[in-house]
Structures are given as C-alpha cells and as structure tokens.
C-alpha cells in the first residue's frame, strides 16, 4: 500500500519527456530576439532602458523586413494635453479622402481590407438613423441630394469599455486621452471589439498586407507600427503625429475643413471654441462612454 503513494520518479520523468522534447524543439526554432519579444512585459510596466532596447530591436527588424529606415517612437503623453476631436456634420461631403489618408498613414492592411474610419451615409429626412445608414454608397458625385455623411472612428472615450474588458490589460487610455493597444500583449480575444459600441476596433484575421513601397516608416510603438495577424487595432488620433505637434492625417486631408483637432485643456484652442459656441453632440450619448470625439453643426 505504501508503495502506491510513493512518487515513481523514473516513470514521472519518462512521462514528461515528450513534453520537454516538444518544448525544446519549439524553443530551438526561435532566435533570441523572438524569445525576448515573446517574454516581453507589458509596455506600461517597462523601464526607460527596456523600452529603448525594444524600440532599437523593432527598428532593426522593420528596416530589414521593409528595406526602409524605420523610426519607432515611444514618445509618452505630454502633461497638460487632453486631445479632442470635432467633426462638422454640415460640412462633410462623404468623399472618403480621410479614410484613405488614414489607411496610408497608419499602415492598415489593404487586403484583407481594414479601415479605421467608416463614413456613414444617412438620409436627411430620417436624421441619425444607424439602421438605414450605408457605408457602401458609391455615386458619381458626393454629396448626394437629400443625404448627409457621418464619419465614425474611435471616439477615444473618457469611460472606455474596451479597456475595461481586456483580460490582459493590453489596451489602456494614456494620459493625453488616447486609447492605445500594445500589440505584443494583445491575445486577440476580441472582447474589446464586442465592448466597443462604435465598431471602432478591427481584428487582423490574416497577416496584414501593406505594399512595401507604400509603408509609412514613421511609426509609434502604440500606433501605426506594422501589426501581425491575430491582434486588434484602432484609430489612435495618429499618435505618431499628434505627439510631435502635427495634426492627424484625416484632419490634414479633409478638403472641406470639416475636421477639427486640438487640446481640450487649452481654453484658447479651436476645439474649445467649437464646444463652447457651436451645437455639439456625441454619438450614442446614452451609453455614458463620454467620447472626446464631438460632432457639431457649423452652420
């Protein structure tokens, strides 16, 4: 009886051998950089030196892969800045220039196609009616008679449900209000996609396909750096641009000047002027997500 309780160490060892062999084979297939990447901690918890080391490795990896000098920034948020966005519904003509400027700037996959901005065409006599909105409109010319256009992207909520549900804390709201994703920590569970009421998060079902000649080498670790399949991505207000003092690509490209961007904490900013003087609404206000993306009527 006593013998039964004892650990048969030889048998246990032999049982574990196949597992060990598979593990050893898997590890031998990885080089040291891949292993480092696999065991990398959450970006928020890393020290400055660790971040610098990771950035250096990524720049080297991307430069070799794409044959271009890559810059991966890890510039943190600046104190005293809270980014906000305003879009003039009465000016937007639905030309989709913002959609493709965003695709180009942020290295979004062309095939399978990922668009962080979706322009909804709605009928004026129905008002804001999602049930009858169309994103596949394709007339000869826009704006079409009797229609208005409502571009939708990440609303950079103050109360973001997507970050709350993330089981690995791979997504969070930075101090300047931008909701970011650490692609190395995203496990692709898509809980955040289910939680987002704006359909603003997109999953890479396949390896993202961006033509090498079109890749944008000015990137940010938490923004437009090349992604892999199995991770979720979203609009970051062009974090690689706005943290350097530039406007997001969609703001720059808009031919009608419908898009406004600025610091909500600066009482003299254009965005604050709009909030204080124009008629403003937030999308799905009833959900209490508290977006920092405002729609307004300039007329």
């Amino acid at each position: 009886m006593q013998k039964k309780d004892e650990n048969n160490t030889r048998r246990e060892f032999l049982k574990k051998l196949p597992v060990l062999a598979i593990g050893a084979a898997a590890l031998s297939g990885c080089n040291s950089e891949e292993l480092d990447e696999f065991f990398q901690q959450n970006f928020k918890t890393l020290s400055k030196a660790e971040k610098a080391e990771i950035i250096k490795n990524l720049e080297k990896k991307y430069s070799e892969k794409y044959g271009k000098e890559f810059k991966v920034s890890a510039k943190p948020a600046t104190e005293g800045i809270l980014f906000g966005y305003a879009l003039d519904l009465s000016r937007c003509i639905g030309c989709r220039k913002c959609v493709y400027a965003c695709v180009k700037e942020n290295n979004q996959s062309r095939d399978p196609q990922i668009h962080w901005i979706q322009v909804l065409q709605m009928e004026k006599n129905r008002g804001i009616d999602l049930a009858h909105a169309d994103i596949h409109y394709n007339p000869e010319q826009v704006p079409e008679e009797g229609h208005f256009y409502m571009p939708v992207q990440c609303q950079q909520c103050r109360n973001p449900q997507c970050t709350t549900v993330c089981p690995t804390k791979a997504t969070w709201q930075d101090e300047d209000g931008i909701v970011v994703v650490d692609y190395n920590w995203c496990i692709g569970c898509r809980y955040c996609m289910a939680a987002c009421p704006y359909g603003a998060r997109h999953f890479n079902w396949g390896e993202p396909n961006v033509p090498i000649e079109e890749i944008n080498p000015d990137t940010h670790y938490l923004g437009n750096r090349p992604r892999t399949n199995g991770v979720v991505e979203k609009c970051t207000f062009c974090i690689q641009r706005v943290r350097e003092g530039k406007y997001p690509a969609c703001v720059e490209i808009c031919p009608t000047g419908s898009r406004k961007f600025g610091n909500l904490l600066d009482p003299n900013s254009e965005i604050r002027y709009i909030l204080e003087n124009k008629r403003v609404l937030v999308f799905k206000e009833e959900l209490n997500t508290q977006p920092k993306f405002y729609y307004f009527f300039g007329v």
């Binding site: 003509i93 030309c95 979706q118 004026k124 008002g127 994103i135 409109y137 010319q141 704006p143 007329v299």
Partner: peptide, 30 residues
C-alpha cells in the same frame, strides 16, 4: 457646452439643407 440630444440633432439635420457647393467623386467604397 452646448450639447444636443440626438432628437435635437435630428431636428437640425431635417430643417437645415447643408447645401455644399463642392461636388466630387468619392473614393472607393469598402
């Protein structure tokens, strides 16, 4: 801020024409 409810926004959309003088061909649909 002058925040509007959805119904107030709908009223503005229905009443105001927003006539845009610019007419261009849109880029391809998704």
């Amino acid at each position: 801020f002058k925040t509007l409810s959805r119904s107030e926004a709908d009223e503005i959309i229905k009443k105001e024409p927003f006539s845009a003088s610019v007419k261009i061909r849109p880029l391809p649909a998704p």
